[in-house]
Lab assay of single mutants.
Amino acid sequence: SSGAIIYTVELKRYGGPLGITISGTEEPFDPIIISSLTKGGLAERTGAIHIGDRILAINSSSLKGKPLSEAIHLLQMAGETVTLKIKKQTD
């Protein structure tokens, strides 16, 4: 049976990049997913974020019904501590 787990990851960026690339579309209900991780970057080092994971919220702002451009804007405005709500498929 296919299921999913949902969890929250807190990234402290200390002025540096998060080390993630996200992808999606401008269709508001398409998923926003992690499309790549910078090798040795902040997100990869947590061990908790993987390519293909879906981002449900950024700093408690839900991405439900929001296009990719809004998600990118939220990441850019997120500040030093970025909290990502992640949904991972478990097959």
Rank of each mutant, 00 (worst) to 15 (best):
S1E: 07
S1A: 04
S2Y: 08
S2A: 05
S2H: 06
G3P: 14
G3N: 14
G3S: 14
G3H: 13
G3M: 12
G3W: 10
A4K: 13
I5E: 11
I5F: 14
I5S: 14
I5G: 15
I6Q: 03
I6H: 04
Y7A: 13
Y7C: 09
Y7W: 10
T8I: 05
T8S: 07
T8Q: 04
V9C: 03
V9P: 04
V9M: 05
V9T: 03
E10G: 11
L11T: 03
L11Y: 04
L11M: 15
R13Y: 05
R13T: 09
R13M: 08
Y14G: 11
Y14S: 15
Y14A: 14
Y14C: 13
G15P: 08
G15C: 08
G16V: 01
G16L: 05
P17Q: 15
P17L: 05
L18I: 07
G19H: 01
G19A: 05
I20F: 14
I20R: 02
I20M: 11
T21D: 05
T21K: 11
T21G: 15
I22T: 03
I22L: 12
I22P: 00
I22Y: 00
S23E: 13
S23Y: 07
S23A: 06
G24V: 04
G24W: 14
G24D: 10
G24N: 06
G24T: 12
G24A: 06
T25I: 02
T25H: 04
T25E: 07
E26I: 04
E26M: 04
E26T: 08
E26G: 11
E26H: 11
E27A: 07
E27W: 08
E27R: 11
E27M: 07
E27C: 10
P28Q: 06
P28A: 07
P28C: 08
F29S: 13
F29M: 13
F29K: 12
D30G: 13
D30I: 03
D30A: 09
D30M: 07
P31I: 04
P31F: 03
P31N: 12
I32C: 06
I32W: 01
I32S: 02
I32K: 03
I33P: 00
I33N: 06
I33H: 13
I33C: 14
I33Y: 11
I33L: 11
I34W: 00
I34D: 03
S35N: 10
S35M: 13
S36V: 02
S36Q: 15
S36I: 03
S36M: 08
L37F: 04
L37S: 01
L37W: 02
T38M: 11
K39A: 11
K39M: 06
G40Q: 06
G40A: 07
G40M: 05
G40N: 14
G40E: 08
G40L: 03
G41V: 02
G41Q: 05
G41D: 01
L42F: 08
A43P: 03
A43S: 05
A43D: 05
E44W: 06
E44N: 03
R45L: 07
R45M: 07
R45H: 07
R45A: 12
R45G: 12
R45V: 05
T46M: 13
T46N: 15
G47D: 04
G47K: 14
G47I: 01
G47C: 08
H50R: 15
G52C: 03
G52K: 01
G52L: 04
G52Y: 02
D53N: 00
D53S: 04
D53C: 02
D53K: 00
R54G: 02
R54L: 07
R54W: 10
R54H: 14
R54C: 12
I55F: 02
I55G: 02
I55E: 11
I55P: 00
I55K: 01
L56D: 04
L56F: 05
L56K: 00
L56C: 08
A57I: 00
A57N: 08
I58T: 00
I58S: 00
N59P: 02
N59H: 03
N59V: 03
S60I: 03
S60P: 01
S60G: 13
S61L: 13
S61Y: 10
S61G: 07
S61E: 11
S62F: 14
K64R: 11
K64N: 11
K64D: 12
G65F: 05
G65E: 07
K66T: 09
K66M: 12
K66Y: 07
P67F: 02
P67N: 09
P67H: 07
L68K: 11
L68Y: 08
L68N: 00
L68F: 09
S69H: 06
S69R: 09
S69K: 10
S69M: 05
S69Q: 07
E70Y: 08
E70C: 07
I72T: 15
L74F: 12
L75F: 15
Q76P: 01
Q76M: 09
M77K: 14
M77T: 12
M77D: 12
G79D: 08
T90I: 13
D91V: 15
